[in-house]
Amino acid sequence: MLLEILGLLIKISLVVGITQGAVAYLILVERKIAAFAQDRVGPNRVGPLGLLQPIVDGVKMFLKEDVTPNYVNKPIFILAPFLTIVTAMIGFAVVPFGPVGPNGPVLMDGPIQFQIAPGIDIGILYIFAVGSLAVYGIILAGYASNNKYSFLGGIRSSAQLISYEIPMGMSILGMVLLVGSLDLNSIIEWQSKHVWGILVQPLGFFIFLICAFAETNRLPFDLPESEQELVGGFHTEYSSMKFGMFFLGEYLHVITVSYLVVILFFGGWDIPFVTDSAQTGWIFAMIKVAAMLGKVLLMIVFVMWIRWTLPRFRYDRLMELAWKRMIPLAIANMVVTATVLQLVRG
């Protein structure tokens, strides 16, 4: 019992530490990609190839003066960035980083599970539930700042996030129907046994990807913080590490979403013809973890690439896209999948 709890704590600290560190370097990656897209060099002064830049950035964040304006709603103003980062982090509880199940590498009489909370059979629902809480951070930040632009940003984001949650939830239903389970690990195993999700659910993948961009407030859907219209959006009044937390939360969301895309549509740890769920031992476990990480990295790079490729949407177009395009498409995808399944399985 105690050992279990200890293992759990180790896993949690590992995940938190790695993801936080990853975020720091993701910012560097983003800046490099931005520089590439704009035909610049990018940060290259701190350390070799600018590799120490994230550390310096972090130090700067911590050392800056933390300004809290006196007209803000203080409790909520302080609560908002924490909410953002917490909701972004706890989603990782059910994400499998590698193989999960009885075939994992054995350590101290038990297989290691590359997942903080194995055996939760409603993994996807959990992630959606947690993801739906992410809106609080933004809307409360906007409200508590007591600032016209922040407020508008918060209002915009709440409408945007609620709207895009619907098609996002519906787009994965096709995969859920195919697999017959809400457990992320089962979904990966089904894909390794049969075929990657993107091949059987291309429309679902497409809708999910677009909604993921909107849910993470990334370009071309970063309306809540669009600089030209709203100064800085909901985080205009924030400074220092509170601002850093919003930044962190955004990148954590990107990582979560990338994991989801990889798990749902790109087979998770699966490499065709190489891996399957029956393999045991450390070597295969490491291969699987690496495969998963690689795919997630590619996905993150894709997200950043899109940022420097597409211009921002107008707000009414954004809502129209959700309600008039995405939702009908998602419903059609679901109905067609269900019908075909019923016909095939009888």
Partner: peptide, 18 residues
């Protein structure tokens, strides 16, 4: 539990806040 969080916390209360 997940459904309640999604519907209540994620949608209804946000709408109320709105």
């Amino acid at each position: 539990a997940a459904g309640t969080v999604i519907v209540y916390a994620g949608a209804i209360i946000v709408t109320f806040l709105f």
